[in-house]
Amino acid sequence: MSSDFPLLRLPEKALNLVIQCMDYIEIVGFSLASNKTKETVKSLNLQVSPLFLTTEEIIKVHVQRPSRMFWNFYPGGENAGNGPIPVYMPARVTARRGLTREILEYLNPGYSIQKWIDTVQYIFSHPGINCLVFKRDRCKFDMNSLMETIGTAKVNAFFFDDRCGVDCAKMAVRQFPGISRMYARSQNMVETSLYTDILMQNLDVLFLGEGDVIMRMEFDNLLLINSKEIKIRSRDITDKMINQFLKHWIRGSNPRMEFTLLLFPDGRILDANAILRGLNFREAPLDQVRLFTKPATQERVEIMGGYDIRRVNGSVGTLKIVQDDGRGAVIFCVWN
């Protein structure tokens, strides 16, 4: 049986069908074979999202939809030392589809990480990197080199994960000023007073804490936050702090805020009277359901009842106190 198949000599319809029968992992590999194969794949208008780039001991890329794919880029000997080091030329690349154990290994692929990222973005018409993920206490890679690797791709969000440290987060924010979303869920970032300059950023989305990562939050830091959509998981925010926060909002603080979710772990009981003390509010009936669309993410939230509070500039915010199964939460949304 002959070992090769003249794929590019097939008529366009048949060639396209062959590619459409491949898994996305193979489609990416195929598009890296030559400019002709790259253009062939691009013409199919396939799309993927979101695209994550993770910096750890090594650099990883992963895509979630339509099928999950993971690429790990392994260096040769030049990855030694604690860093910051330049982004390396991968000596080998492994690819894995979904949650399978099957790993494909490409030896000495001869492409820089930048070329892989560029190719994935080009063939899937994907304008940017949805998320840049930092997991180490200190970023192993030189930020300028990381920027070069990402190239012209727009980075939309940061994930500060695992053990990512404050210095690493600050450096990343300085290096990539156009970021619109930030998710901090690192054990090394629970002390929010260490990065007030990040809290002040004009972000669309700011999530602080998740799961067992619970943030320490002082009142002044709460007032510094300048994001549109805010989610904070903390034990430190007292009923009195929420009350003060709302009073400051009425007078004009946190002007960009559109949606805030405060989550309280460990069965905290919220006192509505303490939260509403001294506020001029109108209580909406519980059977009144209002749909709120978060402007930053276009996600829709059902608000049942709640307390309407008017700001000095005339805009209205609705406060909703949720208490169930020993878990407390406060939702505050500003209607446009």
Partner: peptide, 26 residues
Amino acid sequence: ACKKVALMAKGKSPEELRVIFEIPTD
């Protein structure tokens, strides 16, 4: 038939695909 051809690409690197599918380099 096209699925059969697509399966030839499974687990192959770009270099191997070049050989299998007679893809000329740039």
